[in-house]
Simulated assay, not measured.
Amino acid sequence: GIALSGVIVWGIVIAIVAILAIRVLPEVMDYYKIRQAVKAVAAEGSGKTVSDLRQAFSRYAEVEHIQTLSAADLDIFKEDNKVVIAFSYEKRIPLVANVSLLIDFRGSSTGSGSAQ
C-alpha cells in the first residue's frame, strides 16, 4: 500500500503542476492567437503598406480579443520579396507570493518563431 506521507507528497506535486497549468495555459493560448493573426496578415500582405498591415492586425486583434500585443509592437519588413511580420514580448506570470514565471514569447510570419 501507499503510506499517508506518499499520498501527501503526490498531492503536493499534482497541486503544483495544476497551478502552473492553470496560470500558464491562457498565456500560451494568447501567443498562438497572435501567431495565427500575424501569419494571416502576412499572407494577405503583398502589395500593402506597413500601415495597412498594422490596421489589418488591429482588426484581427479586435476579433480575437488580443490585448497582449498591439499593432505598433510588430516589426514589419521584406525579405526575399516576402512580407515578414515579427513580434516578441515578455509575460510575467505571478505564481505564489513573490515568485513569478517569466516567459519570452517571439514569433514571425515565416514560421521561425518559438515560445521559450
Rank of each mutant, 00 (worst) to 15 (best):
H65P: 03
A43N: 10
V7Y: 00
F77M: 01
I8H: 01
S70M: 02
L101A: 06
A3H: 04
F87A: 06
K82F: 06
G11V: 05
L101N: 02
E44I: 13
I14A: 13
V41M: 05
V63D: 05
V28Y: 15
T68C: 03
G111R: 08
V9G: 02
D75Y: 01
S108P: 01
A15P: 02
A3K: 11
K33Y: 05
A72M: 14
V83G: 07
V99Y: 11
V96E: 02
A15C: 09
I12N: 04
T49G: 11
P94T: 13
V28W: 09
Q36D: 12
G11K: 04
N81M: 01
A18R: 02
A61F: 09
A3Q: 11
T110S: 15
R35I: 04
V24A: 05
I66S: 08
D104P: 06
I76M: 08
I93E: 07
V96A: 11
V96W: 11
V41N: 09
I76W: 03
A71G: 05
R106N: 15
A3G: 11
V28R: 08
E64K: 14
V38I: 13
V83M: 06
N98L: 13
I93K: 07
I12D: 02
G107E: 09
S114Q: 15
V38M: 10
T110N: 10
A86P: 10
V13P: 00
A18V: 03
V96F: 15
G113T: 07
V50N: 02
